[in-house]
Amino acid sequence: MVGITDDKGKQVMLCDSEDSEDDDFPPTTDERIIRALVVHHDDHIVKTHEVMLNTLDVETHSVKTSQEAMKLICVEEVYDLILLARYLPIIDGVQMTKMLRDMEYPTTIVGVTRLLTESQREDFFSAGLDGCFDNERPLTDKTLAVIVESIPRRQTWKKRNIYSTIYQSF
């Protein structure tokens, strides 16, 4: 604990954390920075989502595979939103969602995919999906604006150091 005095002379105690988890948060400002990751193999869908997200002032990255996404997630960035295809090579969207939830990764994951059967939808949601749009590819600007508006404030990823170290050891 660190004691500081506020502008009215009152003593305030703050936690003195040596933990670097706060690095996940953007600098303290009035304006909120939202980061999104688009994981999809279709270039048209990726480009459309990138343009719409940038219009909404969302910092956007995109990749074509789950492997590339996991590298970004484990080593580089914490994303507030992941737009995820259901069908991807090697590691599909269901498996990636389950992996992220098992890692306690704090993000909103939205499936953007072709039409799913009820069973496929249940599998995707049971993996930890927050929302799914299987009738709208790419998403409309209104839908994307509602998704972005509903994203909660970024939380610290408590297991970041563990998974970053594991990923970099491969």
Results as ranks from 00 to 15, higher is better:
39 V>M: 02
163 Y>Q: 10
25 F>I: 15
7 D>E: 09
140 T>N: 08
109 I>W: 04
47 K>Q: 11
170 F>N: 12
155 Q>D: 11
137 R>E: 07
69 A>M: 07
9 G>T: 06
129 L>G: 10
9 G>W: 03
161 N>A: 09
156 T>R: 12
3 G>N: 11
102 D>Y: 11
74 C>T: 13
14 L>I: 10
29 T>C: 11
140 T>V: 09
13 M>S: 11
144 L>F: 03
62 S>A: 13
45 I>Y: 02
32 R>C: 06
135 N>F: 03
165 T>D: 15
55 T>R: 12
3 G>L: 07
91 I>P: 00
149 E>F: 01
36 A>W: 00
121 R>S: 00
30 D>H: 11
147 I>H: 01
113 T>Y: 00
100 L>E: 04
32 R>N: 09
37 L>H: 07
10 K>Q: 03
57 D>H: 14
95 Q>R: 12
148 V>H: 04
50 E>K: 10
64 K>H: 08
109 I>H: 12
114 R>K: 08
89 P>V: 05
22 D>V: 15
27 P>C: 11
7 D>F: 07
67 Q>L: 10
144 L>D: 01
157 W>L: 10
30 D>G: 14
169 S>E: 04
26 P>W: 02
69 A>P: 06
154 R>Q: 09
149 E>L: 02
133 F>E: 04
53 L>A: 03
63 V>D: 00
36 A>I: 01
9 G>E: 01
96 M>A: 06
121 R>K: 06
64 K>I: 00
155 Q>W: 03
150 S>Y: 01
10 K>R: 09
139 L>F: 01
134 D>M: 02
42 D>M: 05
8 K>Y: 05
11 Q>S: 12
133 F>S: 05
66 S>I: 02
141 D>S: 06
81 L>D: 06
170 F>I: 10
148 V>K: 02
120 Q>M: 04
146 V>D: 11
93 G>N: 00
120 Q>A: 08
61 H>P: 00
1 M>P: 03
35 R>A: 02
1 M>C: 00
46 V>K: 06
49 H>K: 05
8 K>G: 00
3 G>M: 12
17 S>L: 04
50 E>C: 12
132 C>S: 02
71 K>S: 15
86 R>C: 07
46 V>I: 15
102 D>T: 13
137 R>M: 10
34 I>A: 03
114 R>P: 02
132 C>Y: 02
88 L>S: 06
120 Q>D: 09
85 A>C: 06
156 T>E: 13
119 S>T: 07
134 D>Q: 01
129 L>T: 09
125 F>M: 08
111 G>M: 11
127 A>S: 08
8 K>V: 00
76 E>R: 14
6 D>Y: 08
169 S>G: 06
76 E>G: 12
45 I>S: 05
32 R>T: 14
141 D>P: 04
94 V>K: 07
119 S>C: 08
